[in-house]
Amino acid sequence: MGENDVWQGTLALMVLKTLESMGPLHGYGIARRIEQTSGDRLIVQYGTLYPALLRLEQEGYIASEWGVSDNNRRARFYKLTRAGRRQVEKESQRWEKAAAILARFVSPGEEPL
């Protein structure tokens, strides 16, 4: 995996967070938004994006419907479901906890007394 590739296991959360903040978006919009949010330091591999979207839809976290984009193209739009909103919250907490634990290994500070 390249340095700029989205880390495995984090794409789903990025997708959910993007849909939470942006509202319904098509696949291209989701990919671009993730890349922009990372300051173009991440590259979304479309080969992993669409299967991830499908999985999230199968699990009921997002729903999709066909619509028309800003530039008048027919596109499939994805939106967060209620279960998806709950999942965002749950996964965000889990991620924060994991990141905090990892940070203790990467930059060990003073041990608590």
Binding site: Y28, N71, R73, A75, R76
Partner: peptide
Amino acid sequence: QEFAEEIETHLQMQ
């Protein structure tokens, strides 16, 4: 067919 259409849209947007 739908997936092919979705990818085609993606390509056009890019």
